[in-house]
């Protein structure tokens, strides 16, 4: 099973004909992702990678009924692409674009309110359910079908969690990168709710980092909801260089929030099992799942 994507998920790619999008789509297809089309303004009616290319997302939706869209467009146009996908009611939108202006993401976030779409990203490596569906830029190889759900702000720490859970023979149900930007789509809590309800997921690895208050809010959620499955948490940045910020209020961090130590304490008090360092995510989960 897993969450968000499975072997039946039909995927279109916005920006399909770009060089990176082409390479990533080829790899996704080779992995088994069910790609059904692309959207490239000005290239509607052509075909690329043996897939039909449409002028607009709405046309692609009419013709292919996709479950998800991979947004692989340059940052200057990424927000408009996401909003177009939201308006076309695509259930899952995955945006890997880096460096999308934050006020553009504020617009996207507003468009998501009350919509029928979920958004992963931007600045996310994407989502993968091993041996079923991959949407994103992550290397396929270390993934193995299995028991652990992973949700991370960082792509590379996510990779480590995948590699380590594979090495201890647990494998992954689904791995989600929620992205490293200040304003983004699905958060830890959205993913935890899905993982709680997913039969294939026996334990969850949550990977946070300094900045913002997402980890603290997740801790509040865990206190309220009482996870039915072990939640193993790692937070990076205990020894991060002190930020040479200029203003007092550059982030809400001024008011005593956002440090790794505070996040770890909050998650710990909410019942999460804290991973001592980035090399021990797999072994910690192995122990947490013990005799199961």
């Amino acid at each position: 099973m897993g969450i968000l994507v499975d072997s039946g998920t039909k995927v279109i790619c916005q920006g399909l004909t770009g060089a990176t999008a082409t390479r990533l789509s080829e790899r996704a297809i080779a992995y088994g992702t069910k790609m059904v089309g692309g959207v490239v303004p000005g290239k509607g009616g052509t075909s690329h990678l043996h897939l039909p290319v449409f002028e607009t997302v709405a046309e692609a939706v009419d013709a292919t009924r996709p479950d998800a869209s991979a947004v692989f467009v340059p940052p200057a146009h990424a927000a408009d692409a996401m909003i177009e996908a939201i308006k076309a009611e695509i259930p899952l939108i995955v945006c890997v674009s880096e460096r999308v202006p934050v006020l553009d993401m504020v617009r996207v976030k507003r468009a998501l309110e009350g919509s029928k779409s979920r958004l992963i990203g931007a600045n996310s490596q994407g989502v993968i359910t091993p041996d079923a569906c991959k949407i994103g830029v992550m290397p396929e190889r270390p993934h193995t079908k299995g028991r652990v759900g992973i949700v991370s702000r960082s792509a590379t720490l996510n990779y480590e969690a995948v590699d380590q859970t594979t090495n201890v023979h647990l494998g992954q149900s689904t791995s989600v990168g929620i992205g490293g930007d200040p304003v983004y789509g699905m958060d830890f809590i959205d993913c935890l709710e899905l993982f709680f309800a997913d039969d294939a997921t026996e334990g969850i690895i949550l990977i946070g980092e300094i900045g913002g208050t997402a980890e603290e809010e997740t801790a509040e959620f865990l206190k309220r909801e009482k996870s039915p499955k072990p939640v193993v948490a790692y937070v990076a940045g205990l020894n991060a260089p002190t930020d040479r910020r200029m203003g007092h209020a550059g982030t809400v961090d001024v008011f005593g929030e956002g440090s790794a130590a505070a996040k770890i304490e909050a998650l710990k008090s909410a019942g999460a099992i804290i991973v001592p360092d980035a090399s021990a995510m797999g072994t910690t989960m192995r122990r947490a799942l013990g005799g199961r």
Partner: peptide, 30 residues
């Protein structure tokens, strides 16, 4: 030097845990 900011932060912590000290934080963009 690390290919990713999150892992770079994790490695700074790991180095410190093992008794070392990093000279920098350097993240290579994709």
């Amino acid at each position: 030097m690390v290919t990713g900011a999150g892992l770079a932060l994790g490695i700074l912590d790991l180095i410190k845990d093992r008794g070392g000290n990093a000279a920098d934080f350097m993240d290579v963009r994709p």
